[in-house]
Amino acid sequence: MTNASVPAAAQVAEQPAKITPNGNAVVATRYEIDKLTALCALLTEHPVVFPAAIGRPVLPLAIGILDALKPLLRPEATAAQLKDALRTYSMSLAYLLAQSRSGSWRHDLAGVPVAPVSEEHRSSAWDRFTALRARRNQLRQARRSKIEPAAIGGQAKGGTEASSEVVKPAMAGAR
Rank of each mutant, 00 (worst) to 15 (best):
A131P: 03
L93Y: 05
N22V: 07
R122P: 06
A13H: 12
P75A: 14
A142R: 14
L36H: 01
G23P: 04
R128V: 06
G153F: 08
L96A: 00
V114H: 01
V166K: 15
L43K: 01
H107V: 05
K168L: 15
R136F: 08
V49S: 04
K157E: 09
A9G: 15
L97Y: 04
A150K: 10
K35A: 09
R133V: 06
V6W: 10
N3H: 14
A110G: 11
H121Q: 14
N22S: 13
P169R: 09
L132N: 08
A8V: 12
L73D: 00
G173K: 13
A151V: 15
A38R: 14
L132K: 15
A94K: 08
I65C: 04
S102T: 14
M171F: 14
G64E: 01
D108N: 10
K35C: 09
G158L: 06
A17Y: 10
T20F: 05
V27Q: 02
G111V: 06
S92F: 01
R135Q: 13
S100W: 00
A134Q: 11
R175L: 13
R133L: 13
G158H: 04
I152A: 13
G173E: 08
L36K: 05
V48H: 12
G158S: 05
A162H: 09
Q155Y: 09
A110V: 05
E161L: 15
M171K: 13
L132Q: 12
W126G: 04
V112M: 09
D34Q: 14
S164T: 12
R30Y: 04
D108P: 05
P16A: 09
A53V: 08
R74I: 00
R122L: 04
K70G: 01
A79P: 06
E148C: 12
E32V: 05
E120P: 07
K168S: 13
R175Y: 06
E14M: 12
K146W: 03
Q141H: 10
P7M: 02
R74A: 08
